[in-house]
């Protein structure tokens, strides 16, 4: 690992000010993804600002009848929260589908959203990758792209966002709360946090430099059943090939794009009376495969049909 300096932030305000004032600084909370990438020389922060102890770990009901999950709550705490289990089961299911128990016990909710892609070319410093090394090219385009994106990709990048949790949050209409170095706070839909790769795949999110995620806020759950389904090569502790989160009439897809993918075309088709499979096919009409990931189109269609059917059963 390259040398870096370290500080433990005394407050969220101090953390964002330090981040803005220090070149090449990064926040660290759980560190499970960042330290892995630092060991591989993919992430190279000169300074780490530890935000893991900030008093932002509470999970509490909002006056609107929703739930505010502090960004420093661990993934395990969020999945185990009684409110999450009772009212947002799709979120609990998605969280426990990700990583291992040890990782979930350390990884924060905010950090989960900020995790980097698992694309093999991003991880291999001997290979070209526009996300890791802008301008170097994309090794996945004509390479081992079995797990690459099928929606919203660009000629510069076909990496996917790996989070399970974010897929459920996308289906639940979650809102992200942040604090900027200016002291300004803002709240915006989770679907506006991550971006599509375009020409600048090195930029994962729309956050401004030094901006810190402080909480994720869930509105009251939509009426209807909730289900999270994930397809992967092992039964446990493996990244996903594709996933589907259903919350009432809301539908989100995971590991198919550079961001959690809200399947609005499929939602509209379902609302208009289409069968789950028909709705999935309508969403996937815009899908494009790079080669070895072509199977993901059919996989997502079947996962979606099965998840919607299961959610409807639970919603009764």
């Amino acid at each position: 690992m390259r040398p870096f300096t370290y500080e433990r932030a005394e407050s969220a305000e101090a953390a964002v000010q330090a981040a803005a004032a220090t070149p090449e600084a990064k926040f660290i909370a759980g560190g499970t993804n960042l330290l892995d990438l630092m060991k591989l020389d993919i992430e190279r922060p000169a300074h780490l600002i530890d935000v893991g102890r900030l008093p932002l770990a509470r999970i509490e009901e909002t006056p609107e009848g929703g739930l505010r999950i502090g960004a420093m709550a661990t993934n395990s705490q969020a999945a185990a929260d009684p409110q999450v289990r009772a009212r947002y089961p799709v979120l609990a299911q998605a969280i426990v589908a990700g990583g291992s128990p040890q990782l979930r016990n350390k990884a924060s909710v905010g950090g989960n959203l900020m995790q980097r892609t698992r694309c093999a070319y991003f991880y291999d410093t001997a290979k070209p990758c526009n996300k890791r090394e802008p301008g170097s090219g994309c090794g996945a385009l004509e390479g081992l792209n079995r797990n690459a994106a099928i929606l919203g990709q660009s000629h510069a990048c076909i990496a996917t966002h790996a989070s399970d949790m974010a897929v459920a949050l996308a289906a639940l209409d979650a809102v992200v709360e942040t604090l900027a170095p200016t002291g300004e706070t803002r709240a915006f839909p989770l679907l506006e946090l991550h971006r599509l790769p375009g020409e600048t795949p090195q930029v994962d999110t729309h956050l401004i430099p030094g901006e810190l995620i402080t909480a994720v806020v869930l509105p009251p759950p939509p009426p209807g059943g909730q289900v999270y389904r994930k397809a992967r090569d092992r039964a446990s502790y493996a990244g996903g090939l594709a996933s589907v989160a259903v919350a009432g009439g809301n539908l989100a897809l995971g590991m198919v794009a550079h961001k959690p993918w809200r399947a609005t075309d499929a939602e509209a088709a379902l609302a208009a009376g289409a069968s789950p499979r028909e709705a999935a096919d309508i969403e996937l009409a815009q899908a494009a495969a790079a080669g070895r990931n072509a199977f993901k189109v059919e996989l997502v269609a079947r996962l979606t049909a099965a998840a919607v059917a299961e959610a409807r059963g639970r919603g009764r």
Partner: peptide, 29 residues
């Protein structure tokens, strides 16, 4: 593995199991 994939480094921190390889000592003051 030193990358959080094998679990050989699992210890209990404040009673909770984590991978000791994916955590900095300074974070545990």
């Amino acid at each position: 593995c030193d990358h959080g994939q094998c679990g050989a480094c699992t210890v209990l921190v404040n009673g909770v199991r984590i991978n000791a390889c994916l955590s900095l000592a300074v974070m545990h003051d």
